[in-house]
């Protein structure tokens, strides 16, 4: 994990380190098992086609957890994530598998965040960010916001 970030070290307009993610059909099955969301929309081609989304789509909640991962990595152990929200605005589709454990070439998503406000409140050192998951074309399919408390050098 990266070095601990401190509130004094950040400023409004600053981008945080992006977190790349890929999704494969195998990963979606693993997420279904871990999260308990067994909606066939995410692994059954015939069902997904009947739902008007073309083919199985990535779970919105998995993209949300990618954003949580982006934020918790950035705030580090001394920081804490206070709020996170996101909207699933556009569909994302997983890569198929070439062989077991080997995804086909394809899309890589980038989870990104940018600080829009730096302030203190009730003794806490806080930052607000816009966050989002960008698809391989650079389109934000899952925009959101986050608030985090960072440690202060005092």
């Amino acid at each position: 994990m990266a070095e601990q970030v401190y509130w004094e070290d950040v400023e409004e307009g600053m981008e945080i380190p992006p977190l790349p993610k890929i999704a494969t059909t195998t990963m979606l099955v693993r997420w279904a098992g871990a999260s308990g969301d067994f909606n066939p929309l995410h692994y059954d081609e015939v069902f997904a086609a009947g739902q008007g989304v073309g083919k199985p789509i990535i779970h919105g909640a998995l993209k949300r957890q990618w954003l949580v991962h982006l934020m918790t990595d950035w705030v580090g152990e001394q920081g804490s994530l206070k709020k996170l929200s996101c909207q699933y605005r556009a569909m994302d589709y997983p890569r198929a598998m070439k062989a077991q454990g080997q995804p086909m070439d394809g899309e890589t998503w980038q989870c990104k965040g940018k600080i829009i406000k730096k302030y203190t409140e009730d003794g806490e050192h806080l930052v607000d960010l816009t966050i989002g998951v960008e698809n391989g074309k650079g389109e934000v399919t899952t925009p959101g916001t986050a608030t985090a408390a960072l440690p202060s050098r005092g």
């Binding site: 739902q51 008007g52 779970h59 919105g60 909640a61 949300r64 804490s80 994530l81 206070k82 709020k83 996170l84 929200s85 996101c86 909207q87 699933y88 959101g144």
Partner: peptide
Amino acid sequence: PRVLDGGMEYDF
């Protein structure tokens, strides 16, 4: 009959 997840807001 169809349902999609639209989004989530969390306060931790």
